[in-house]
């Protein structure tokens, strides 16, 4: 009916066949990420190089200082660093993205969508996490070659545990994104929190019970056991998996709630989209 011709003066009736669904939304934001990835490879390569230089400093510098002690722990460091790069990407995916959209003048268009602002922001975050996952896998491969380390790489186990671990950080990113909607220039300060992920990733989940409720902690512990000890998904204790799933869902929901509240406040203050 609405093919670009005049429609006779009445409100147009919606045509379900023309309406995009959430799958179309995911495809659109995913395709945009793909286009930027292949069209501007220097951005991705730059990120990989910086991460590897940082890891090189950590590894070679640490070995010069700590010698064999660090070499003995190298598997844990590699797995932890892999999770850290993944977490940083997930965390910054939403908060940095909102800051960028505000500067580009495109934030309002993502607000004025029948899908809802938060679902669109989440879909964009997911697309960026997938991109980050691919980059982190490359970083992991180079780390394994450089350090001569071998790990147990059960793809299903690693993917499930890593994704659930990263979900908790995505929730934090959602909350940070919400704060960024209110206070646009706070993004760089919020990025400092990513260094706190180092603490969370290395927290002793199995020694201190309550720490496993923090973001990343349970996921980091299970990822270490999967990649170092070769533990596969169905061998993991049900309680551990439940905590992993619970923290993933809980932090995403909490982050989503913060995002919704801060967005509403930004609308009340009239600062949505203002820089």
């Amino acid at each position: 009916m609405r093919d670009g011709t005049a429609d006779g003066g009445g409100a147009p009736a919606p045509d379900p066949d023309r309406q995009a669904g959430y799958l179309d939304l995911l495809r659109a934001v995913g395709y945009r990420e793909y286009l930027l990835f292949v069209r501007y490879p220097a951005d991705a390569v730059g990120g990989i190089v910086v991460s590897l230089i940082f890891f090189g400093l950590l590894f070679f510098g640490g070995r010069a200082i700590a010698g064999q002690a660090l070499t003995d722990e190298i598997e844990g460091i590699v797995v932890g660093y892999f999770l850290w790069t993944l977490s940083v990407g997930a965390y910054s995916s939403i908060s940095n993205d909102i800051g960028s959209e505000v500067q580009w003048g495109t934030l309002e268009r993502h607000f004025m969508t029948p899908f809802g602002f938060a679902p669109v922001a989440f879909a964009k975050g997911v697309a960026k996490v997938v991109r980050t996952f691919l980059i982190s896998v490359v970083i992991l491969a180079v780390m394994l070659v450089v350090t001569g380390t071998t790990l147990q790489l059960d793809l299903l186990t690693i993917t499930v545990v890593a994704v659930l671990a990263v979900c908790s950080v995505l929730g934090l990113g959602f909350a940070a994104g919400g704060v960024a909607v209110l206070y646009k220039r706070i993004g760089s300060w919020l990025n400092l929190l990513q260094f706190g992920f180092v603490v969370l990733i290395s927290a002793p989940a199995f020694d201190l019970g309550w720490t496993r409720l923090l973001p990343l902690v349970q996921g980091s512990a299970l990822l270490q056991r999967a990649m170092i000890d070769g533990l596969v998904l169905w061998e993991m204790p049900l309680l551990d998996l439940s905590v992993l799933l619970g923290t993933a869902v809980g932090y995403v929901l909490a982050g989503y709630a913060v995002f919704a509240i801060t967005t509403k406040r930004a609308r009340r203050l009239g600062v949505l989209g203002d820089y």
Partner: peptide, 8 residues
């Protein structure tokens, strides 16, 4: 177009 809810 997709963001606004129509299949491109």
């Amino acid at each position: 177009a997709t963001i606004s809810g129509v299949k491109p």
